[in-house]
Design a protein around this nucleic acid. Structure first.
Lengths: 199, 199
DNA sequence: CGCTCACTATACAGATCGGTATACTTTCCG
DNA sequence: CGGAAAGTATACCGATCTGTATAGTGAGCG
């Protein structure tokens, strides 16, 4: 079901897990290119040999980092969406609730996929499909959830929700104003009311 | 009026201008950390000595790059906004028209400020205020333009427009769907109609 | 004329980059 | 018992990074 199938071929030994944890934190907070393998090794209390035994190269660490974030975000999100009544507007609002909770828990520097895309511009990079795949998946999710509560115009509504959501993540990362995800949530609510999603 | 006053102290000789042009193109297309001074020098057909004579260091090239983009974007945008009737909803829509034209002319890889923020996380970096300053300025612009066409709720409308606009730039950069800026523009139009901005 | 400024050309320094090699230890498991 | 797997420690490689040093060229100008 995931788009990350053929990419993750790492034996997740305890040391490999520490590497992924340290790399994830450093990549997200400081950026990908600026974080070296030596720093990751030191932070994970692991030798470089172990890193290269498990991952083969830095590129694969990046792939694992993004695939892991993607996987965890989808699971995190599912808990919020599934908790809301089926085919309800509340299911859409739950996405914004999940984003706010995720941001509070895992760092407010915006979306890791968007940030990674700023550094990985080459579409041939093995991590590229993970980045674009998650955004495609989010758009499909919004469109599907919108289709469950409106008789027509689900595509349009889905794209608008996508824009509000992405905009909120960026505004959150740059600290443009307070609680942008809350703002986006209220905007989505208004939008859903206008679309007749509250019967 | 600009937020970039105390930062630009470069004598813009012909060679320095070629450096800024080359660095701007490379930074935007490939990223900041991944582009070295040697590459910039080669691409600008300039020796490294000239670069360090004019800019002092790579950090200042980054500052000039972002300050220049910010300056040019504001001038570009002003032409679109000022061409629309004063205190009209068309002025707001003109922002989206400007973004679409800018993206078509200067590259579709999203917002250079957002991309730079992914690589420059340290708030003490001299380029940081340029990044956040532009977003603050955009929010103030949207809020001011919104205040010109609605009697109340300009702050709220301004923030919503900001989210739509930022979301559209990100979606454009990641290629989530076709013409996201056009989508955002239509959404803004609906929003403005609901707010009674068309008398 | 002679000075200054902008610039070229080239070589180099010191640090850091991703990645590899060698040798050793521990743990688990058939 | 014995061997494979997972790990540590350390030293190293070539390439690349930002930044500097030295020497020389050409144009503008008082």
């Amino acid at each position: 079901m995931g788009t990350t199938e053929g990419l993750r071929r790492i034996t997740m030994t305890p040391a490999a897990r520490r590497v992924l944890e340290a790399a994830g934190r450093l990549f997200y907070e400081r950026g990908i290119h600026v974080v070296g393998v030596d720093l990751i090794a030191a932070e994970a209390r692991v030798t470089k040999k172990t890193i290269y035994d498990r991952y083969g190269g830095k590129e694969q660490i990046v792939v694992e980092y993004l695939a892991d974030r993607d996987e965890r975000w989808r699971a995190f999100l599912a808990r919020y969406v599934d908790a809301a009544p089926p085919a309800s507007a509340a299911r859409i609002l739950a996405v914004f609730d999940a984003s706010r909770a995720w941001s509070a828990a895992y760092g407010p520097k915006g979306c890791s996929m968007v940030n990674a895309h700023a550094e990985i511009s080459d579409p041939a990079h093995p991590a590229y499909p993970i980045i674009t795949g998650q955004k495609q998946w989010m758009l499909a999710l919004f469109t599907r959830l919108a289709g469950d509560v409106t008789s027509e115009g689900a595509g349009d509504l889905g794209r608008t929700l996508m824009l509000l959501h992405e905009g909120a993540l960026v505004a959150q990362g740059l600290g443009v104003f307070a609680d942008p995800i809350g703002q986006a949530r209220r905007d989505a609510e208004t939008l859903l009311a206008a679309a007749g999603a509250y019967p």
